[in-house]
C-alpha cells in the first residue's frame, strides 16, 4: 500500500467533514419550509420577503460550504 497514516487520517477527516454539509441541508430546508408555510398563510406578504428568504438560505448554506472547504483542504492541501 502506498501512502501513509497522515494521508489516511486526512481522507477520513475529509469524509467526516462532509457530514457538516448535511447540517447545511437541514438548515436550508428549514428556512425554505418556514418561508413556504408563512407564504401559504399570507400569500400577499410573500413577494416582499423573498430577499430575506435568499439571505437566510445564503447564511445557512455558507456553513455547509465551510465544511466542504475543510474537506477539500484535508484532501488536497494537507
Amino acid at each position: 500500500m502506498e501512502g501513509d497514516l497522515v494521508q489516511m487520517g486526512a481522507y477520513i477527516g475529509a469524509g467526516l467533514a462532509c457530514i457538516g454539509m448535511g447540517g447545511a441541508g437541514i438548515g436550508v430546508g428549514h428556512v425554505a419550509g418556514n418561508y413556504l408555510s408563512g407564504a401559504l398563510r399570507n400569500p400577499s406578504a410573500a413577494p416582499g420577503q423573498t430577499a430575506f428568504l435568499f439571505i437566510g438560505i445564503a447564511f445557512a448554506e455558507a456553513l455547509g460550504i465551510f465544511s466542504f472547504l475543510v474537506a477539500l483542504l484535508l484532501m488536497f492541501a494537507v
Binding site: F59, I65, F68
Partner: peptide, 13 residues
C-alpha cells in the same frame, strides 16, 4: 470570510 468563501465554495463545488 463567509461572503467570499460562500461564492468561491459554491462555484468550486
Amino acid at each position: 470570510v463567509s461572503h467570499s468563501i460562500r461564492l468561491a465554495g459554491a462555484m468550486m463545488a
